[in-house]
Design a binder for these strands. Structure first.
Lengths: 212, 212
DNA sequence: CTAAAATCTCAACTGTGATGAATAAAACGC
DNA sequence: GCGTTTTATTCATCACAGTTGAGATTTTAG
């Protein structure tokens, strides 16, 4: 009776694009890039597989679009960025660790990293997101000369910790508790706030007000 | 005339397994995990595709076997490990950077990282290799209490630098010269040689002879 | 010498991302 | 309002990936 038309445009104006994007974002953040299949996204979103190609061109395109929606590293950082810049590193590190500890919430950054490592194009997308959402904000917060470089160095150290602990699982870092890590390594992160005395013996960096 | 038997065991005893492994190792280190196809390895090694499954079970199995052959991070580290432990971090960092700078020689560790990020099983293989070939050697070299932890922390920092510079390409770290990086960040790596005064106010670490 | 084990080829299977043709609804021009 | 163009959707199919099982052949063991 209800002869549902099997082809052609659907009636009404369902925002299919947003629907796909919604599912894709969640799935990518949960399962990484490679592991998530376009077919599964299409199925869950209740659309045809080819529609993804139609709207986003390719899997990379979809990943990029889902990422541009601004992913949650910014959220994690948001709380830490407020408050005393002097203790920002410890707090940021701590928040990141306990987030990652939760298997539910921990996957997102892993997904980003997985994508970035695997593909040049994806790496560029992740880079832009990180610079926009993380580095810029930290740099603005700590201020001073070389703020950006110090912020990036901080990110590098945290990234290294993440890779070592959660990806490679090297011991003993892998089996230390988050608190232990913050206690042991946190204080060192703070050092990035001061220009390294050894390399810049002259031209001391004058602290500057936060530029926002 | 030459009725080459098209099926069955080949005559003689060609070490097919080693042949595959040889090609696989090179290709994996050059191109990463995902990008290298079993078919291309089989073709280059001049064997049938199914032989790879026969000998190594799966692509992961092959990757693991190729890795167990001891990969080149050990080689890079070898030179740096000799000489004054006090300047080991700078030298190791420097060697690693200039190696990575060379597009020819730089790919290997990227391949390892790519594999590790992508798959739990591969991560375990990489972990074992790194602990065996890198962490243990550094720890033995620097000695003292917490030697292993400090070595791992060092690896974490270097890993973070690598990820940030070569995978994500965050600025300004990405565009600094290797020398600049060593000058700027190297001195901080040295800090891992001393127990962090803040966290361990009592129980000073007594330097111990190198155990080898 | 013969049976078993090891090695090797071939053909197929399933699942992946991607593409192009056919179709239907919506939007637009007048 | 009608015809045309644009947009959205489905279906069928592609090339290529890793994996698997059946058989063929050689080597090895007893």
């Amino acid at each position: 009776m209800n002869k549902t038309p099997r082809r052609g445009r659907r009636v009404g104006s369902p925002d299919t694009r947003a629907q796909i994007l919604d599912v894709a974002r969640r799935r990518f953040l949960e399962g990484g890039y490679q592991a998530v299949t376009l077919r599964s996204i299409a199925a869950e979103a209740g659309v045809d597989l080819a529609l993804i190609s139609y709207y986003f061109g390719s899997k990379k395109g979809l990943f990029g679009a889902a990422l541009a929606l601004s992913a949650n590293p910014a959220d994690i950082l948001a709380r830490a960025v407020e408050g005393d810049p002097a203790t920002l590193p410890q707090r940021a590190l701590r928040d990141l660790l306990i987030t990652w500890e939760d298997p539910e919430a921990g996957a997102p950054l892993r997904a980003l990293l997985a994508g970035a490592v695997q593909d040049e194009t994806l790496a560029h997308l992740v880079k832009e997101m990180l610079e926009r959402e993380v580095v810029d904000k930290i740099a603005a917060r700590i201020g001073g000369a070389d703020a950006r470089q110090r912020a990036t160095t901080f990110c590098a150290q945290v990234a290294g910790l993440i890779v070592t602990r959660y990806i490679l699982r090297l011991e003993p870092i892998s089996s230390m508790s988050p608190d232990e890590i913050v206690r042991t390594i946190g204080p060192r992160l703070q050092l990035i706030r001061r220009p390294a005395a050894i390399t810049r013996s002259r031209g001391r960096a004058v602290p500057q007000p936060v530029a926002e």
